[in-house]
Design a protein around this nucleic acid. Structure first.
Length: 502
RNA sequence: GCGGCCGUGGUCUAGCCUGGACUAGGACGUGGGCUUUCCGAGCCCAAUACCCGGGUUCAAAUCCCGGCGGCCGCACCA
């Protein structure tokens, strides 16, 4: 059954224009997807809702929004550690054909630390020490590096640069400029929405693992010595977090998530600080408002071997998909790592004055994967068996089409009236995207609208011509109400915010 | 990247093993027409497909090779 859901979603996405493989007509390389008309609207709505929630309406501190370059120079990514960390040295066994990570192999066999060493050096070590295939003892050949970053050559001199592997680096690189330009005081945050690129070895699962993907990220900068938290922490402190602890993960069965409030999670030392816990709580609320039930969410505390040495704790927000639990938000406590390494490599002082004390701020980073979230929403909205046709019960705020306008019959007077109402709504200053449809029976049009997740269907009938009222049908209940035409605009707008927190 | 299975209109598929009668069939959807007073109604008409390249053959959707893509497993995945 579960795989069938994923299949149904992909079919629907293709059929209705949510997403499709890039350069489909050429069978382009895997890991690239284009968003279609409906997918694009949905993405924009999601981003706007996210910006509203995490940037514009944030009252604990200022959140500055930036838009950085996708291409970053070699030096910046060398400093951040990506050049070394995002390269996997590999070798193949001549006898059994298995492929091994060279660095892991050498560390296991010889106990040598080889982080950051080039492929030639590693090859030399293998030769000198006679390291062989751990599976069959065969000889190692075909040494090569796999770059997880897309390498570019910039300008006439051919300077090396990369497509950014995460949006975060732009924020650290701009830290000093932003802090000065905005006269920022700790704590403050910088947010960014944009594309990132990772040259995955074998991307799969439609838009879940992409080589080019969109991130919505925030870096919160705070004093490492004050030990405070967001001023509005108490507003979300009671939110229940489901945490899959490290102890639970080490159990054979995969473990059970424990439940406790965000406040208790900090007090019991499970989550390292209030800034991180604040975001975990806000994320739960955010995704709940997007129709993902709490029992389908959990925060997995990454194991030490999964996190970089500087990490003060990473908590992945995982959502239960039809094919298993999958990360949709990464929450990292990066301490002062990034600012420190960039300060060291660039020679710039990236400390900041905090009430008379120079400090290098610590950083908490929630990083949202846009396409994964879109997919999660689609899976959680898809219903079969409610109607005689598939129904997409999308969160009203992100659904691409807020209302569809139908003349009940394909009859001149009704069509003219419907078109008049449609053009009026289309000209609205409110963000209410509407469509018009007169083809086929009214039932067929309701079905089409349901499948595209259209929030409301407005039908113009004989009575409209008499008293200027129309019927408005709700997607989720199929219930109809009669409303005056001059109330429509606001009704459609307000309906999109139905059920959201104030 | 390795192994297994797979690739036919927009979607799902029949045909492939056993090459020729395939001018590639069906369902749903789509466009047009008629009809139709609120939940995929009906009738008529139409358009749209053998993933790409090479090979075998008198003849390839069908057999072989390569590429690309998909699914599953392994590996990989801040």
């Amino acid at each position: 059954m579960p795989e069938q859901l994923a299949e149904s979603i992909v079919q629907l996405a293709l059929r209705r224009g949510f997403f499709n493989p890039t350069a489909e007509i050429y069978r382009g390389p895997a890991g690239f997807y284009d968003l279609g008309p409906l997918g694009t609207l949905m993405k924009l709505n999601l981003i706007n809702y996210w910006l509203d929630t995490f940037v514009r309406r944030e009252t604990s501190y200022e959140v500055y929004l930036i838009d950085g370059s996708l291409i970053l120079p070699f030096e910046a990514l060398k400093a951040s550690g990506h050049v070394d960390k995002f390269t996997d040295p590999k070798a193949e066994c001549a006898r059994c054909g298995r492929i091994h990570r060279l660095d892991q192999l050498i560390e296991e066999a010889l106990g040598l630390k080889v982080e950051g060493k080039g492929i030639e050096e590693l090859q030399e070590i293998v030769k000198v020490h006679g390291v062989r295939c751990p599976s069959c003892g065969g000889e190692l050949t075909s040494f090569k590096e796999h770059h997880l970053m897309f390498k570019l050559s910039v300008g006439g001199g051919g300077e090396t640069a990369f497509l950014r592997p995460e949006t975060a680096q732009n924020i650290f690189l701009n830290f000093k400029r932003i802090a000065y330009a905005m006269r920022a005081k700790l704590p403050f945050a910088v947010a960014q929405v944009g594309k990132s690129f990772r040259n995955e070895i074998s991307p799969r699962q439609s838009i879940i693992r992409l080589r080019e993907f969109s991130q919505m990220e925030i870096e919160v900068f705070f004093s490492p010595i004050r030990g405070d938290g967001p001023s509005s922490f108490d507003e979300v402190g009671d939110t229940v977090l489901r945490i899959l602890t490290r102890e639970e993960q080490r159990r054979g069965d995969g473990g059970e998530a424990i439940e406790l409030s965000a406040r208790d999670a900090v007090e019991e030392g499970i989550v390292p600080n209030k800034f991180l816990a604040y975001y975990l709580a806000k994320e739960v609320r955010f995704f709940q408002s997007l129709g993902i039930p709490p029992e389908n969410m959990r925060f997995r505390h990454l194991l030490p071997e999964e996190t970089p040495h500087y990490s003060g704790g990473n908590f992945d927000l995982e959502v239960k998909f039809s094919f298993g639990w999958k990360e949709i938000v990464g929450n990292a406590y990066r301490r002062d790592y990034d600012l420190t390494v960039h300060s060291k490599h660039s020679g710039e002082d990236l400390s900041i004055d905090d009430n008379g004390v120079r400090v290098v701020p610590h950083v908490v980073e929630p990083s949202f994967g846009v396409e994964r979230i879109l997919y999660a929403i689609l899976e959680h909205s898809y219903r079969e068996g409610v109607r005689d046709w598939p129904l997409l019960m999308l969160p009203r705020i992100v659904s691409p089409i807020k209302a569809a306008i139908f003349p009940l019959l394909d009859r001149d007077d009704l069509v003219a009236k419907a078109w008049e109402i449609y053009t009026r709504l289309r000209s609205s200053r409110l963000p209410i995207y509407t469509v018009y449809d007169e083809r086929g029976s009214i039932g067929r049009r309701y079905a089409r609208a349901d499948e595209a997740g259209v929030n409301l269907c407005v039908t113009i009938d004989h009575q409209t011509l008499q008293d200027n009222t129309v019927t408005v049908r709700d997607r989720d209940t199929a219930a109809q109400v009669r409303v005056r035409i001059d109330e429509l605009e606001e009704l459609i707008f307000n309906d999109a915010y139905r059920g959201l927190e104030q």
